[in-house]
Simulated scan of single mutants.
Amino acid sequence: MSNTDSFIDEVTEEVRRDRLFALMRRYGWIAVLVVILLVGGAAWNEWRKASARASAEQLGDAILSALEQDDSQERVTALDAIEAPTPGGKALLNLLKASEQAGAGDDAGARGSLDAISADSDVPEIYRQIAAFKALTRGNANMSAEDRRLRFEALATPGSPVRVLAEEQLALIDIETGDTEAALARLQAILEDAEITSGLRLRATQLIVALGGTPVETSAG
């Protein structure tokens, strides 16, 4: 390589270096900002996770303490005093409170706690449907068969976590209203459902036999 070529290369390299430094002086703050945002975002995410975990642990400790009370009414009072940080936590508290109220013989209070969950749009849908189902099974004396049928049908839709249980309640309403044929058909459909539990399978089989039917053998469950 000639001296001229070497000199040209050196000049070219210097020009590139000068341009790079100029670009860094002009736009370097952007790179610094990106680094700060990335580090800050990671730190915020970790803080948020730790905060949520601590909040959940605090709620769990408070619930366990409340459930250690001597009788149902004391447990209801203790659960009532707990502040839940999230809609899901609030729903869990109300489900537990409803259970204790029912244990204390306060059916009206239990239904009120369950209705509060099912009516809260901020609560996850799974809690709302479970609460609505439990409230319906506790409110039979105050509702007509047709009203209960309409509400259980709304819970028996595909994807509902209480769908098969709602179908069982609809079969019981069929029996209550004297439609044995419809009850048998519904109970047999329950036996054939892939989501059936062993307990529900036993109840459905017993009901079919009690109604004079013959359970059809299935491979479900």
Rank of each mutant, 00 (worst) to 15 (best):
V15H: 11
G60I: 04
R111W: 00
L211W: 02
S99V: 05
D174I: 00
S65G: 04
M24P: 04
S113C: 05
A145M: 09
L79C: 07
E181R: 11
D9N: 12
A182R: 04
A42V: 12
F7H: 11
I175N: 01
G109A: 07
E167M: 12
A104F: 01
L114V: 04
R25L: 13
Q206N: 15
A66G: 09
E125K: 13
L202K: 14
T86P: 07
V209I: 14
F7Y: 12
E192K: 11
T214Q: 12
R17Q: 15
L191H: 01
A154P: 09
A22I: 00
N45F: 14
L38G: 14
G212C: 08
T197G: 10
I196S: 06
P158N: 01
D179G: 05
M24R: 14
V162G: 05
L93T: 09
I175G: 03
S144R: 04
K49Q: 15
T4V: 12
E68Q: 14
A98W: 00
T180Y: 03
S118W: 06
S6H: 13
V35Y: 06
K97H: 06
L211M: 04
Y27L: 15
R111M: 03
N140C: 09
I82E: 00
L191T: 02
E57S: 14
A183R: 04
A54N: 11
L150Y: 07
G213R: 00
T137F: 00
